[in-house]
Simulated scan of single mutants.
Amino acid sequence: MGAVTTTSSADSRPSAVLWDMDGTLIDTEPYWMAAETELVESYGGTWTHEQALQLIGAGLLDSAKVFQAAGVDLEEQAIVDRLTDSVADALRTKGVPFRPGARELLADLRAAGIRTALVTMSLRRMASDVVDLIDFEAFDLVVAGDDVALPKPHPEPYLRAAELLGVDIEDTVAIEDSRTGVTAGVASGAVTIAVPNLIPLDGLGAHVIWESLATRTAEDVIAVHARHTAEVAR
């Protein structure tokens, strides 16, 4: 009879939890959609809710090409800057709209001694503004859209975060709300938790789908990672 290998709770803890920002940590999607609508309409075009949904989680420079096709007569970087400024202004004036349970889970992970990183396709200056508005030390590092050559759904943002943290990507957990984000997390090798916001996330290979972060704790994240670790070991 073969020896039975067991995994201790300490071994099953993830080395880090990697958070998406827009739509996962904070509910900025309505801010982005309002900024997009104002931008396109200022050039005489129309922008629908369905079009806005297609850009959730996309890289900003890739999105800029879509706005150019919709009639926005600006260079790509100028489009990115205008949208970012609009959303950043909304955050400053309206506050940081955390997704239900997100702030509590983030704080619980920190209290449990689990490292965290913010992995977002927003510009670093906007990500820094958001981090500065959180009333505790929330992240060990930030990887933003202008820090990588290839945006989500490419795995580079998550691989970069793991590299900077000095951990194995397969020993991390990624939390995402978009199709591009979940695709990036899964492709990177991170244990990926999908938390749908405005769009369904079925069929993308997420290791688990949570309908909300409300009431979720660090122990829940550890359990997802431990379960995946055990499955791989088997």
Score class of each variant (00 low, 15 high):
K65I: 08
L55W: 04
D85Y: 00
G45T: 10
L91K: 07
S86L: 03
R92S: 10
P97K: 09
G71W: 02
S86Y: 00
Q54I: 00
R92K: 06
V66H: 08
Q77Y: 10
Q68M: 04
R103Q: 10
G45R: 11
L106A: 10
Y43Q: 15
T84E: 06
L53M: 09
Q77R: 14
A90P: 05
I79D: 04
D81C: 04
L91P: 01
L105N: 05
D62P: 01
T84G: 08
G59V: 00
E41N: 09
P97E: 12
T46R: 13
L83A: 13
V80A: 09
G101Q: 11
V66G: 09
T48L: 09
I56C: 06
L91R: 06
S86E: 04
R82G: 09
T84H: 04
P97M: 11
L74Q: 05
A58G: 08
Q77L: 14
K65M: 13
D89K: 11
Q54V: 00
F67T: 06
E41L: 08
R99H: 11
L91V: 07
D73F: 03
P100L: 13
R99G: 12
Q54G: 03
P97F: 02
S86N: 07
I79H: 03
D81A: 06
D85T: 01
G101S: 12
L55F: 04
G57K: 00
I79M: 04
F98G: 12
Y43I: 14
D81H: 03
Y43M: 15
G45E: 14
K65A: 13
Y43G: 15
L105M: 06
P100G: 14
A52H: 02
I56Q: 05
D81E: 06
G59P: 00
D85L: 00
K94V: 14
E104G: 11
R82A: 11
L74R: 06
L106Q: 05
A52Q: 04
E75S: 13
S86P: 00
D62V: 07
A52F: 01
I79K: 04
W47N: 12
V72H: 08
L105I: 07
W47I: 06
A90Q: 13
R99F: 07
L60N: 03
L53E: 10
E75I: 05
Q54N: 03
Q68I: 01
S63Q: 04
E104S: 13
V96T: 15
E75F: 05
A69G: 14
G44E: 15
Q51W: 02
G44A: 15
A90H: 13
G71Y: 01
A69P: 08
A78F: 02
A102T: 12
A69M: 13
L55C: 06
V72F: 03
Y43W: 13
G95D: 10
E50W: 03
A78Q: 10
T93A: 06
A58K: 01
L106N: 05
A69H: 12
V96G: 15
L53T: 07
A78S: 09
V66C: 11
A88V: 02
F98C: 08
A58Q: 05
G95R: 05
Y43V: 14
S42P: 03
E75H: 12
T93C: 05
V66D: 11
E76N: 13
T46K: 14
